[in-house]
């Protein structure tokens, strides 16, 4: 086994070294995946349904542990980290889940503010920011609605607001445009691109939608048969 070290710890946000993943009692989803995403990069993750996109993202946001290999986040090897250190890493990541995972008993506003509440910030300090963010995603009139009373697209936009609210170093989006109309989808892509450019947020976005791949300069990771292929789509990388 090679002792792999990311060349530049402070310039990588994610690095996989010969990572394998197998769910209990099944065959490998993938068995030998290595790649590296630099800080501030914009990356698409594609692959057929069931190829393992969501699984790969779960490894990154530390909801799963690899069955073999090493994962480095922000230059830190995650394998040996203590629970508190893992929590601290998670707080640097914003996640838009494929199935949203909003909390039903909280309002749209409270869902969006959740990461700040977890960080122990005071409600009166963050309220204006959260409300503005929700207005921006077009939910200004539904701030206090429960998720159950909202459409799929509206829920998705709350999920997006929640992922962005604490200005993460890394944004992970699992099919973030799956439930919104083309216009909203374009707006979201522009938002992600702007976050990426202005704030230096690294973005990793899983999508089926081939049309989106060219919309933002960046690279594409393709999962196929347990292997990963990385290619650049635009002139810049």
């Amino acid at each position: 086994m090679t002792l792999y070290k990311p060349d530049s710890f402070d310039t990588t946000s994610i690095s996989f070294d010969r990572v394998a993943l197998r769910y209990d009692g099944t065959q490998d989803v993938f068995s030998d995946v290595s790649f590296e995403l630099t800080k501030g990069s914009f990356t698409f993750l594609t692959g057929n349904s069931g190829a393992g996109k969501t699984s790969l993202l779960k490894l990154i946001y530390l909801a799963l542990r690899p069955s073999a290999g090493d994962i480095y986040l922000f230059g830190q090897r995650t394998h040996h980290l203590k629970r508190r250190q893992l929590s601290a890493l998670r707080r640097r990541i914003g996640i838009i889940f494929q199935e949203f995972r909003l909390l039903d008993h909280l309002s749209a506003y409270e869902n969006a503010a959740l990461p700040l509440r977890i960080r122990g910030q005071k409600e009166r300090d963050y309220r204006p920011d959260v409300e503005e963010l929700l207005r921006w995603v077009g939910l200004g009139k539904r701030l206090h609605a429960r998720p159950a009373t909202l459409s799929g697209g509206e829920k998705q936009r709350i999920a997006i607001a929640r992922a962005l609210v604490n200005k993460p170093d890394l944004l992970i989006a699992d099919e973030p445009t799956g439930n919104v109309d083309p216009e909203m989808s374009l707006r979201l892509m522009r938002l992600f691109a702007e976050l990426n450019k202005r704030m230096g947020t690294s973005v990793l976005m899983a999508t089926h939608d081939k049309a989106l791949l060219g919309s933002v300069p960046g690279s594409v990771l393709t999962l196929h048969n347990g292997l990963i292929v990385k290619q650049n789509v635009a002139e810049e990388s």
Binding site: Y61, A63, S87, R90, R92, I93, I95, L103, L114, P115
Partner: peptide
């Protein structure tokens, strides 16, 4: 379970 999971993944400490 779902609430605990979401809090956990969002970075809440034990």
């Amino acid at each position: 379970r779902e609430i605990v999971d979401v809090l956990h993944i969002t970075g809440a400490e034990d």
